[in-house]
């Protein structure tokens, strides 16, 4: 792909990626032909090489000269997050269907649905506002835009992707287990999943909206850990607490963004 882009645009970044990703792909291809454990080593070297390339490109000032279209990010990353949440929702339905309508499973399923809705709102409320407020994206199209996009989306949204996978897995196990207490590993997967999702959401709030107000929302990370620690043996209360915490964090974020928008309108009145 980068060969086509490099020929078309003669961009130094594209040529850098042609060489770098080409080398990483070659190393990954070698892993196919190697026996264990050498295949893992080659695969890892190829992966680390490709992950490090945007960092090296940033150090060589290649990212600042390459134009980027930041408006695609909320659509693509929003969609991938939606896919993850959709999978979690599918798991709720599937687990309830497998559980033969037991009261415990139905309750847990309903609470999981509420939690997924809270996560959905928490993730898409700021993204929707960011799309409306195009000036939020000016940071991504400026000279430091490439580096910011790299940090915020390439690396910063990975926890969110992992988080929705973990949430979906915990849904499946917790609802279909018919166990009134929680398996410690499941509670760990659930807590980690929600924490990972929140880290990615906070990264967006702190970077694109306001660092000071954004950091004030970081209480949710230890709160999730504390909730899992305290309500480890009562999945219903745990899910209820996590849902309330997530909605609370969403409300706090909405108030923060509302204040910022109101202040910016007061500073720069409409022409």
């Amino acid at each position: 792909m980068y060969v086509f882009a490099a020929r078309r645009t003669s961009s130094p970044l594209a040529w850098f990626y042609v060489k770098g990703f080409g080398a990483a792909a070659a190393i990954s291809t070698v892993s196919i032909f190697l026996p264990k454990p050498w295949c893992f080593l080659a695969f890892l070297v190829g992966l680390i090489t490709s992950i490090a390339l945007p960092v090296i490109a940033g150090k060589r000032q290649l990212l600042s000269n390459a134009r980027i279209n930041p408006l695609q990010f909320p659509h693509r990353f929003g969609l991938i997050f939606m896919i993850g949440l959709g999978t979690a929702l599918f798991c709720v339905g599937e687990a309830i269907a497998d559980s033969k309508d037991s009261a415990q499973s139905l309750t847990l399923g309903t609470l999981y649905f509420a939690l997924i809705t809270a996560v959905f709102w928490r993730f898409y409320a700021p993204l929707g506002k960011e799309i409306e407020q195009e000036e939020v994206f000016t940071a991504l199209s400026g000279p430091q835009g490439g580096r910011l996009a790299r940090d915020l989306f390439s690396y910063g949204q990975f926890p969110g992707f992992l988080g929705v996978v973990l949430l979906a897995a915990s849904v499946k196990v917790l609802i279909s287990e018919h166990d009134p207490t929680l398996n410690p590993t499941i509670s760990l997967i659930l807590a980690l999943g929600l924490m990972c999702v929140m880290v990615s959401i906070l990264a967006i709030d702190i970077t694109l909206w306001a660092s000071k107000s954004g950091w004030k929302q970081a209480w949710i990370i230890p709160a999730i850990g504390l909730a899992v620690f305290v309500f480890n043996n009562t999945p219903v209360i745990l899910l209820l607490t996590l849902t309330i915490i997530t909605f609370g964090s969403g409300a706090q974020g909405a108030i923060m963004r509302g204040n910022i928008l109101r202040n910016s309108q007061e500073v720069s009145p409409a022409p």
Binding site: M1, Y2, A5, L13, F21, F43, L47, S50, I51, A66, R67, I68, N69, P70, Q72, F73, R76, F77, I80, A149, R150, F153, S154, F158, F161, L162, V165, L166, A169, S170, V173, N183, T185, I186, L188, I189, L192
Partner: peptide, 29 residues
């Protein structure tokens, strides 16, 4: 659902994410 498979999930998620991000950044750029 155990710690070993949690680590395996993480190890598999990284390359998948990175491959997807590669295409997303390419099309955005």
């Amino acid at each position: 659902p155990n710690l070993r498979y949690l680590l395996i999930t993480f190890a598999i998620a990284v390359p998948i994410w990175w491959a997807w991000v590669g295409f997303t950044f390419y099309t955005a750029r």
